[in-house]
Design a binder for these strands. Structure first.
Lengths: 331, 331
DNA sequence: TTGTAAGCGTTATCAC
DNA sequence: GTGATAACGCTTACAA
């Protein structure tokens, strides 16, 4: 069933059918009714592809994430999709993994589907070198690009992110306030936001008289169990530490395991701070003090920005908002 | 830049360009090279909409879930998307929430985008009454429908699911083996798989001489904290129970909290079994014994089935596979 | 092996 | 208000 069949049955031209379909005011009530009746009787729906071809848009956006099963990214996907949907956009999701080559290929595929705009979740997509980011700049030549918790300068690129550096500094300060003398920092990767967080941590240490900050930051790319083991080996190496700030709640949960396993009382002997305010922080016993970086706010804002950009408005290319500490039992 | 521009620059017809684009063998190496050169120089990509209009497919599939931020669903989304991508399909994601009306609207929207097939994640989509499921049967008239961990009979509908009833029975049996006398069951909703799990639990109880099984199952639709409180009120009500089986790991984590808070030793005084083998089971201390319902296997199989169906093959409409117990510290 | 031309199902620009 | 008719950019018989 197509627009011709409808027009024939309703005894009008396809132009009129199209007008009814698109809510044009230039149709008499009588003919509108005639057409709508035929449409409903046959439950006709216009062909999306033909429509898109004319309009040159299918009202879809691309969402790129590295791993949709990651609790943080999963949340972002959820909020983004709901917000986009309420603005009549459909989301195409791509989980790229962490390899640059794959990211590029996924992006190319997405762009070849003529999406209207592009969201990158997380700062894993930002490479340290300008050359590595060329693929994003390129994409921005075709559609507006929104970086969620990532930062990159360029035309048609909009960044929205939590002030991770200050958030990380504040939550480390809290560890000191709660009696810590020597906190270590646990991070997964040195992505853009990863580096910001480390910087905030180090700033706090310096303000508290610890100068050799680099010696207190540790990469824990593995499971909770492995994080736990890394802390154990630190202890065995003779390093003194009595608190841990972590780049995400999963790492913090690893630290909780470490403390419990070694009979350290939390928070009297050992203090822990997570990040992301995810379900994982509530899952531990005691629950983990964590940083709420307001994923929902970020996603809602990003979609609102997209609507403005697609509407031809000029908006700031960067927006940084503050996080807030949620204190629980580990501090 | 369109196919005409390419054909002009390459000095061939648009048909030839199209042939090159689609890898037709009926093109001489010389002309193919000419065309490819022009394509690469101008980095031309064919218009997806025009293409779809001709082919009547854009190689996209719809994925419907109720909540992409749920750890279980997030995993399913991840595995589905990766597998679909490797078969050249792009995924359109919709998070419908839990209200029937919204599910229907989302589905309609997805279908209007001319997707090639449809995946439903979880049994939340299956209503208890046939009338409530009409919208799924309807969708199956247009495209093949795959139910992941849900079951519904109908033409063009394929169900793939874990044998939750037996899995649940087995893991409850384990609680008894580990010394439990009176396990309770914690569930979130009575969805299709929810009911299967409860049935398995009850069967185990009956085999262990407990007849009034209904009195041992409890709905805990809220947070871990609330689950914990429900258990406390059970205790206060005078009910004797010394173990908990749960419909997901989050509920089980709530039970862990309860036990720890009341000084019950896990697993000596209180045994706990989760479900889904998610990150949450590893997050608790002690780690939670859980049931691996093999999300990855389910997703991989579903996509493989889809490929066969789209290929015109006749495949079984239902596939049930067994789960397996992962024993950790709570039993 | 290559080219011509007829679709695909819409939207949009004209006339009337 | 309504109706022809030309795009939109591609695929694919059918000819050559």
């Amino acid at each position: 069933m197509n627009i011709y069949d409808v027009s024939r049955q309703a005894g009008v031209s396809i132009a009129t059918v199209s007008r009814v379909l698109n809510g044009s005011s230039k149709v008499s009530d009588a003919t509108r009714k005639k057409v709508l009746d035929v449409i409903n009787e046959n439950s006709y729906t216009p062909n999306a592809f033909a429509r898109s071809l004319c309009r040159n848009s299918m009202s879809t956006v691309g969402i790129l994430c590295s791993d949709a099963s990651d609790v943080y990214q999963a949340q972002a996907i959820y909020f983004l999709e709901r917000e986009l949907r309420s603005n009549s956009y459909t989301s195409m999701l791509c989980c790229t993994g962490y390899r640059l080559q794959e990211k590029k290929e996924y992006l190319k595929l997405l762009l070849s589907k003529n999406i209207d705009s592009l969201f990158f979740i997380g700062s894993h997509f930002i490479e340290p070198t300008p050359k590595g980011n060329a693929y994003i700049l390129n994409a921005a030549k075709k559609v507006p690009v929104f970086l969620l918790n990532g930062k990159l300068d360029g035309p048609n690129i909009y960044s929205i992110l939590c002030d991770d550096e200050n958030a990380s500094k504040n939550i480390t300060d809290l560890l000191f306030e709660r009696g810590a003398q020597a906190p270590v920092y646990l991070y997964r990767t040195k992505s853009y936001s990863g580096r910001q967080k480390i910087r905030g941590f180090c700033r706090s240490l310096q303000e508290h008289g610890i100068t050799d900050t680099d010696k207190m930051t540790f990469s824990c790319p593995g499971s909770m169990e492995e994080t736990c083991r890394i802390l154990e080996s630190l202890q065995n190496s003779g390093l003194f530490f009595d608190a841990a700030a972590a780049a995400d709640d999963e790492l913090a949960a690893g630290a909780v395991k470490y403390a419990l396993r070694h009979g350290l009382h939390i928070p009297k002997d050992f203090r822990i701070a997570g990040y992301n305010n995810s379900l994982l922080s509530a899952c531990s016993s005691p629950e983990i003090t964590t940083l709420d970086n307001r994923v929902e706010f970020m996603c809602t804002s990003a979609v609102s920005q997209m609507m403005q950009v697609l509407d031809g408005k000029d908006i700031p290319s960067q927006m940084i908002y503050s996080g807030s500490i949620i204190e629980h039992g580990t501090t």
